[in-house]
Amino acid sequence: MSIWEYANPVRFMRTSAVLLPWVTGLAVLALGAGLVWGFFFTPDDFRQGSTVKIIYVHVPSATMAINIWAMMLITSLIWVVRRHHVSVLAAKAAAPVGATMTAIALITGAVWGQPMWGTWWEWDPRLTAFLILFLFYLGYMALWAAIENPDTAADLTSILCLVGSVFAVISRYAINFWNQGLHQGASLSLDKEENVADVFWQPLVISLAGFFFLFLALLLVRTRTEIRARRLMALKARERLA
């Protein structure tokens, strides 16, 4: 069986209907466990005090903000190369979720920055790249809304997605590139030495899984909505012609 079979809308609708309850269940479990553990059952940090609890919403949302754009890039490229409608509709469906995750990362980062850095905002490379990524999300959604022909909209938004990927990469690696600014390095790493302490790391990983499954559940629902909306548009056009 080939992955391209899921480019068939009927096949996608059938498969996603089966997956959706399981993914939603995993999202509720992981998000509930990670957030409750992080908020209620973790100690304060010796330097940051109770503000360390912001990590359980800030890091997962920031991680998802970047990775959702990466997912949109891949599905947009599949549209450009293979013209699979489900693929580009998945990118369209993911954008509002990515924009929300970016907004959460920006807001929680500012609220965390005030007591720790003494400022809500700094034109630091990572923060600035994140703000630009947020604007790209808004631009991407506005472009979809502004163009009537769905295939033209898909083509242009795919190109915009490609351009915006530069800022997604910069927001992830800005610290490594410039080695300056207020923002610290990655909280999660494959290198155990670089990770936060285990007492914070364990609930953080579960929260991250929760945010991932929440995204997946929303993506499935929203892609199903987009497929239905496309069919609705086609049937309305047919009715007008009849």
Partner: peptide, 13 residues
Amino acid sequence: YVLSAWGATLALL
């Protein structure tokens, strides 16, 4: 700070 960060997150989600 902690409650407003969590509140904003839960409200947006």
